[in-house]
């Protein structure tokens, strides 16, 4: 498979803040590559560097097989981009926005009808042709933004948190569209703060504080975890109430909240009975279970491990 983005050791500083600290990543044709991580991890910065909208301070990057120092214009005009904030004209209708992006891409006028039909069929926005973009729902806005990004048939799509703040149903629909595009051979780099969306990617990079703390095929990432994970719960009590006690008992290991439960990640394997004996001093109603780690657990374990290594 052809590589559409190949970044090596990308560095970026904003003043004294190290936004990116040696990011290396690759995006291939016909695949969805996810960047997952919290706000401030550096996902948007990395994307803007790939788009040539930001200058990097170190490392090398080639996009669409072009060195981004040599032919910025080529890269810019051949990538489809959806910024994190909705950046279409809210006072223009769906149709007018599409038409505007068609005209600024200077394509042959005769192609417009065909293109429009195709995008409408794809996005199912046909019924909203004359609706102002500002009155669309969050999900439809994103579909419109994606349609505009696809206007010039880019081989590479860069989507910055396209599903943040979008209802679950629309999110699912949106991912369906991404999979269709992938089937057509488009390479997609997409960022998301939602761990469950990472599972829909072919390959993910976990980012935190400007670094990649894990990468791989999402299913494999959790299998690669060598330690063991336990889940604690006390019926009728909030996890915050016994989190610190557990932290006391398992000093040096990763203890963190996950929903209404507290998770404990141990580097090696340990018997469930041993864990039980260690926690007898806690509430007698405490429930302990062994658990298969999810992507979110993996992410948190890696973040905590980074922190304790003193790499910060």
């Amino acid at each position: 498979m052809n590589s559409l983005i190949k970044a090596e050791g990308i560095e970026k500083k904003f003043g004294t803040v190290n936004a990116l600290r040696g990011i290396s990543l690759e995006v291939s044709e016909g695949s969805i590559t996810g960047l997952i991580g919290p706000d401030g991890a550096g996902k948007s910065t990395m994307m803007k560097i790939a788009l040539t909208l930001l200058k990097r301070d170190g490392g090398s990057i080639s996009v669409l097989s072009v060195n981004s120092d040599n032919d910025k214009t080529f890269i810019r005009q051949n990538v489809g981009y959806m910024p994190e904030i909705f950046s279409l004209y809210t006072d223009l209708t769906v149709e007018e926005n599409l038409n505007f992006y068609f005209t600024i891409h200077k394509m042959d006028k005769q192609d417009y009808e065909k293109k429009r039909e195709r995008l409408y069929r794809f996005s199912r926005l046909e019924a909203f042709t004359n609706t102002k973009a500002g009155s669309l729902s969050g999900g439809m806005k994103q579909k419109l933004a994606l349609s505009c990004a696809l206007m010039h048939d880019p081989k590479l799509l860069i989507l910055d948190e396209p599903t943040t703040g979008v209802d679950p149903l629309s999110r699912q629909e949106f991912w369906g569209m991404l999979h269709e595009l992938k089937e057509e051979g488009v390479g997609i780099l997409v960022s998301t703060p939602y761990m469950e969306e990472a599972l829909k990617c072919d390959f993910v990079y976990m980012m935190n504080k400007g670094k990649i703390i894990g990468e791989g095929i999402p299913e494999n990432l959790s299998e690669e975890f060598e330690g063991s994970l336990y889940e604690f719960e006390i019926p009728g009590r909030k996890p915050q109430e016994f989190l610190s006690e557990l932290k006391q008992i398992f000093r040096g290991d990763s203890v963190f909240m996950s929903g209404k439960k507290v998770h404990l990640a141990l580097r090696g394997a340990e018997e469930l009975s041993d864990i039980r004996t260690k926690t007898t001093s806690l509430d007698p109603e405490l429930l302990v279970r062994k658990k298969v780690p999810e992507l979110e657990d993996i992410f948190i374990i890696r973040v905590l491990a980074e922190g304790s290594d003193g790499n910060d």
């Binding site: 981009y81 904030i85 600024i104 505009c148």
Partner: peptide, 10 residues
């Protein structure tokens, strides 16, 4: 941010 998209056009 609409200029970001114009930046990416010819």
């Amino acid at each position: 941010g609409t200029f970001d998209l114009i930046k990416l056009s010819p």
